[in-house]
Design a binder for these strands. Structure first.
Lengths: 335, 335
DNA sequence: CGGGTTACTGAAAAGGGTTTCGAAAAATAT
DNA sequence: ATATTTTTCGAAACCCTTTTCAGTAACCCG
């Protein structure tokens, strides 16, 4: 804690040069004799000089800092996106200002103002669900990229998981395994994620010329609902041979109830989950086949596109990022 | 995106005053006529003027920004601490620079330098476990508070959960319920959290004049280990009437295996977990009694103490934050 | 009407770095 | 030796805000 922090002035006087020369030497510019540069570098080292990012930013207008605005970072989905973004930024020498609005619009405005006054170079807005959210980009003056939850303004840049594709991928896997009486148990209808997956299911079924086994069962994203749905389904349609669940939680509950009823997974009924939430998907018995939304990659991609947008190369629109099927025992071939 | 951003200069000319007057008017200082202030405020509003935090920080030497350095924010424990801290800072108009070192010392140094060059007012270091970690405070020039994982330097300020007290609290609950043959299944011995809880168990047992049922079973923090431990335990010591598990994951596996063996929870065997990881503790059947480490509160407290430290009122040492017992069905009175 | 207050206002400096431009020094050409 | 070019260096402006300090105008009182 050596009292005051060293400035370039201190470095310059210790090296016996002007601050202009010191600056050039430190930043690797031309027009500095090698021996002089050597002296300046040594002086900087001795004083453990760190250029003041505030002064630098004030002059250049670039803070090399981005804001990360999340509505609900407590949620499972925000975190991986956030980590992916942080990772991409860290590699690019960018710093991340984290703001959690806790789903409160007032707080969001407040954070937005704070970020703007700190002159961030750009902004990533991480949604709490894949439902479109109000755009904040209007008149903001800095580029914004939306991740997970897209903006409602098509002019904005958004990155979301391709839930339609993910669901279709899961269904195609079941169909390829020879399952023909496939049910679909999912979460609340007001989630776009749930509706998109319904669309993906329909797509895959119609391509295969199949009918869904019964109506889609809407519920909650909970294990409890998975159990309940399993009980209803085994009663009403005991002939089903596969179920696509809207989340790993639902799938975990479903599997548990199926086993308790004396039916086997995957032999009698194959089960697929969604999210690849590893604490759940790998710990259930049998381990869950599930759809991974690659959220960390999504966050990283969003961050990279924010870089591009900062450089003036924005790519407006909603970009759907492919999901990935992770195959485990709950759909193992009943060979 | 109105081209350049408005400066106080623009506000001043629009209001027809000098920049000094504008500044005073905006900051609510004396020596400005009410009508003049009114005009300035209107001008600022019209230009949507936001004072440049860089210029302000450069002058005052205070950035109203703190660094949050985590080793592993992917972990379950870092997140709540982080959220609590972010919450406390947000309320105090502070901004949070998030850095995740991913457990890499080089990356940590790099982030540390970046934070310092941005002139953060303080730093919170969030550990990935409660094992003590290398101090970063030496010669840093800004106050540092450690959360969850304490610093190895007793001169530093650290906040950690009181695992000894938490474990004792759990055991006392079992003892109060009349259980007398209590076993302890926990995670790897190289975790200080596991060792502390062993100490808490011993404390509670000796106070009650009881012996532990068998040796402590060390394993991993997984559900798999919980199941395995249950199988071993039911074989070797079928007389046990309660188990204290080192985590909710272990407890969930334990409960599952116990039920499969035809023994009832809590009637035959009461089970307590640790962490209060709600997706697990509330979804198992029966729902788990568990110890909550109040991590969000811990993060908030750490943040508040960082404020104090920034004001020069540091309170060195390791502060243990009390845990809280959350009682659910897995220890329900078998009345 | 002059002296002493009081109420405002504005010029200027400071904070730390980068960059431009001009000047000095050194090297080369004439 | 002088003229010209090249290299190296330093003074000063600039980024934006806050704050100090000096100055102006209005006001009150004698």
């Amino acid at each position: 804690m050596a009292g005051r922090r060293a400035t370039i002035n201190d470095v310059a006087s210790l090296a016996g040069v002007s601050i202009a020369t010191a600056s050039k030497a430190l930043n690797g510019r031309q027009d500095v004799r090698a021996s002089t540069r050597q002296r300046v570098l040594a002086a900087a080292e001795e004083l453990s000089f760190q250029p003041n990012a505030l002064a630098r930013g004030l002059l250049s207008g670039q803070t090399r800092t981005v804001g990360l605005l999340t509505s609900d970072s407590a949620g499972r989905f925000g975190i991986p996106v956030l980590l992916g973004a942080e990772d991409a930024f860290g590699a690019g020498e960018m710093a991340v200002l984290l703001c959690d609005a806790r789903g409160d619009a007032i707080r969001e405005q407040h954070h937005l103002r704070a970020l703007l006054s700190r002159r961030v170079d750009g902004l990533i807005v991480v949604g709490e669900s894949t439902n479109p959210r109000l755009s904040v980009s209007r008149d903001l003056g800095v580029p914004v990229v939306y991740a997970y939850g897209p903006s409602d303004d098509p002019e904005d840049v958004s990155f979301v998981p391709d839930d339609v594709g993910g669901a279709a991928m899961a269904m195609n896997h079941l169909i390829a395994l020879g399952r023909r009486r496939i049910a679909h148990v999912t979460g609340p209808e007001h989630y776009k994620a749930a509706r998109d997956r319904v669309a993906g299911v329909a797509l895959a079924l119609s391509e295969a010329g199949l009918e869904q086994a019964g109506d889609t069962l809407w519920g909650t994203w909970s294990q409890r609902w998975g159990r309940h749905a399993a009980e209803m389904l085994l009663m009403a349609q005991p002939e089903i041979d596969a179920v696509f669940c809207g989340s790993d939680q639902v799938a975990a509950g479903f599997v548990e109830a199926v086993r308790e009823r004396g039916r086997r997974v995957p032999d009698d009924i194959a089960v697929i989950g969604y999210d690849n939430w590893e604490v759940l998907s790998t710990e259930t018995r049998p381990a869950l086949t599930t759809v991974d939304m690659n959220l960390e990659l999504l966050g990283r991609t969003a961050a990279q596109h924010l870089f591009a947008a900062i450089d003036g190369r924005a790519t407006p629109g909603v970009h759907r990022m492919p999901c990935q099927l992770v195959i485990r025992d709950s759909t193992a071939s009943s060979a």
